[in-house]
Design a protein around this nucleic acid. Structure first.
Lengths: 258, 258
DNA sequence: TGTAAACCTTTACGCAACGGCAATATCAAG
DNA sequence: CTTGATATTGCCGTTGCGTAAAGGTTTACA
């Protein structure tokens, strides 16, 4: 089988332009060039392209990929591990960013009548007293060492009111759940209320809600002894009951959407 | 107070080049230009720069920042919320990426003697049978809906052996901890063993270990009723004891490093 | 007052990984 | 032979600056 740039592109889902670019940077050379100057690729090049795409999927740079696919004795493990480290670092940064954006949104929601100038007045004072470098440190000190994970930071950043609300919700979830377990019907009104309360409670810790994740976490309550013990303490089977209620709840929402 | 590019740069911690660039794209114009063509900035410009840096810290594009700081009636909330959505999306992608990289590393560790060609043989076959588009879908189906969160996926991706090891470790942590509580000395040998076992156990769920996060999570065991109940069930005070042991353990490691 | 250091200016290339367009050549079909 | 699809090279644009280069200005010190 021999392929031109477009054939190869269609097969692999990338553009002919990209294939030419890969030739240009020497990461994927054509098998040969025909009399009219067309690039012609063979099976070996298809294989190589698959490898390239695989590593590209892992978000490695083309430079790194080039080294991996070019020299078979390249220390690929090390490259992958280093890359993993970079990804983790990126994620930490992202988590911090998201928390900061959340904070900004909260501040703006709280006092939407303030003008931008006013809002930054306090912020600014500190900055000008010292310098920008200190500002950076301050932010980092405030939001904790970046090793602290996301949900921990969420809690640290809660206002006392939010914290009260969370603990109140937690109690309410339990009470409603226990009442619901008595009814024995995970599709019943009480059970559905418990599921919804639990959803609300979760929303305080999660940056975004999804049905799948909600089901996932309640499944974990059943699988993980620590959570199971907590929910089952007063009413055996409560963890499993909650999971069922949430399953039904999320399915019901789905039906309503149709 | 009047500032040249360098003065302003030192104050705010950014380079003169950046300041000139901000002038160029019209996001921060100097107050005036002196007879020698120097850019001169005043207090108003310092304020504006602080605003710009604030938004830049949230990773907004300079284009977006320009709109925010230029027009006071710009819908900033919407911009922030949209931006937040983008960040969350980015994080999901990153989580998937990290898991894929983890998988690749695991595969390579398992059969390090295989050549690249062999390793990709199976991978490749499927790809060539169908097309690249299907490949994309397959990856997504395999690694689950992207709403499922990172640690859940970690567990799903465990081998049965790993799973056994984790549950075994969990038991061992508890047993050692309970014995240690009896001794009453969180700096003692048993307590330190418990702390270390707990660290090992954690490592199965965390993508990276850090002392601060370890202390943080054991602190949470004390603060969160569910965790506290679990650890204190057989030996009241076990959660707090573990936290102390971990604190001492991490501090000790620090001393050894010196 | 001379001069060197430190500062300022504009212009312009470079970065990553392509997308998009232009000008031109080639191929297959009717 | 024309037409339309496809191929080629090459250059510009993207983001947010870093890093020169080539030159003018200010400041400090002998």
């Amino acid at each position: 089988m021999e392929y031109t740039v477009q054939k190869l592109g269609q097969m692999s889902g990338i553009s002919p332009r990209t294939i030419r670019y890969y030739d240009e940077i020497g990461i994927l050379k054509p098998a040969r060039i025909n009399s009219s100057g067309y690039r012609i690729y063979g099976q070996a090049e298809v294989d190589r392209l698959q490898q390239i795409l695989f590593y590209r999927e892992l978000d490695l740079s083309l430079e790194t990929i080039k080294e991996i696919v070019s020299s078979p004795d390249f220390d690929e493990m090390r490259a992958l591990r280093e890359h993993r480290g970079k990804l983790l670092e990126k994620r930490k940064q992202l988590d911090l960013l998201i928390i900061n954006v959340d904070k900004s949104i909260a501040v703006k929601e709280g006092r939407s009548t303030m003008s931008d100038k006013e809002k930054f007045e306090g912020f600014k004072q500190k900055l000008i007293d010292d310098n920008e470098e200190k500002y950076g440190k301050e932010i980092r000190a405030k939001f904790g060492n970046d090793a602290v994970n996301y949900s921990n930071q969420k809690v640290f950043n809660m206002t006392p009111e939010q914290y009260d609300e969370v603990t109140r919700l937690e109690q309410e979830v339990l009470e409603t759940l226990y009442d619901a377990v008595e009814t024995g019907d995970p599709a019943g009104e009480l059970a559905q209320k418990a599921a919804d309360l639990h959803r609300q409670w979760l929303s305080y810790f999660w940056s975004s809600y999804s049905k799948e994740a909600h089901i996932g976490v309640t499944q974990m309550y059943v699988d993980d002894e620590r959570f199971k013990a907590y929910y089952d303490k007063n009413r055996p089977g409560a963890a499993a009951f909650l999971r069922e209620a949430v399953r039904i709840s999320t399915a019901t929402i789905k039906c309503q959407n149709r």
